Computed example of a mutant assay.
Amino acid sequence: MKRGFTDHDQDLHVQGVTCAASSGWTAGAARSELGLDNGDRSVSGVLSDVDLRAEDIRAGLYDGAQIDTYAVDWRNSDIFVPVSSGTLARIEMRGQDQAAFVAHVEGPAARLQRSIGRRYTPLCDAQLGDARCGLSDPVGTCDKRYATCRDVFANTLHFRGFPDLPGEDFITLYPRSGDALDGASRGGTGRL
């Protein structure tokens, strides 16, 4: 089901969807970093039984919804320009009576910033004390290095990094007289 909202003072009908003016819908500022706008933005409004209900938000009814924003000529709503598109990342209910909300919308570029799977890095990607780390009551802090896992926690069996990855200087290495060329690890930078 499509829902429409507007910050205009009257309802607008755009592409067959009635955009409610009574919602108090207002657009927040878009975030831009290094001149590359990934389209992240927020919008806010007021909950009402007609438009958006708190129960629906708590139940996750709108999670992942497609959000399209248009600039519309209020005198002739057949004249519009697409402004942005994104996916609803999360909704926060605000105010003492939880009657207002802020919806956080991710632009298309947000998908490029997500980590999918594991990263190949010499550092451990587990959190100290979690199930992947394997330590039940760790004492101290962990800097995610293999040497710390080995020397401080004696937990190398559960180290979740890749300590034998070649360092940045790997591309400049060449065989030298006296090197053992047996295929064994050179002890990548992660084991320090």
Rank of each mutant, 00 (worst) to 15 (best):
R3A: 12
R3T: 09
F5N: 01
T6A: 11
D9Q: 05
Q10E: 12
D11Y: 07
V14P: 14
Q15H: 02
A20V: 15
S22A: 12
W25D: 00
G28K: 01
A29Q: 15
A30H: 02
R31N: 10
D37C: 08
N38K: 13
D40Y: 11
S44H: 04
G45V: 02
V46D: 00
S48E: 09
V50N: 01
L52N: 00
R53L: 06
I57S: 04
I57T: 08
I57W: 05
G60T: 01
Q66E: 07
I67P: 01
Y70F: 15
Y70L: 10
A71V: 05
R75N: 11
R75S: 12
N76I: 08
N76L: 10
S77D: 09
S77C: 15
I79A: 11
F80T: 04
P82S: 13
V83L: 15
V83N: 11
S85F: 00
T87W: 09
A89Q: 11
R90M: 11
Q96H: 06
F101L: 07
F101Q: 05
F101Y: 15
A103Q: 02
R114M: 10
S115I: 04
I116W: 12
R118H: 07
R119P: 01
R119E: 05
Y120L: 15
Q127M: 05
Q127F: 09
R132D: 15
R132G: 13
S136P: 05
D137F: 05
P138G: 09
V139A: 03
V139L: 03
G140P: 13
G140T: 11
T141M: 09
C142A: 04
C142E: 07
D143Y: 10
R145G: 02
R145C: 05
D151K: 06
D151C: 04
D151I: 03
T156R: 06
T156A: 08
P163V: 04
E168T: 10
F170K: 07
I171S: 09
P175I: 10
R176S: 00
L181F: 08
D182N: 15
G183Y: 04
A184C: 00
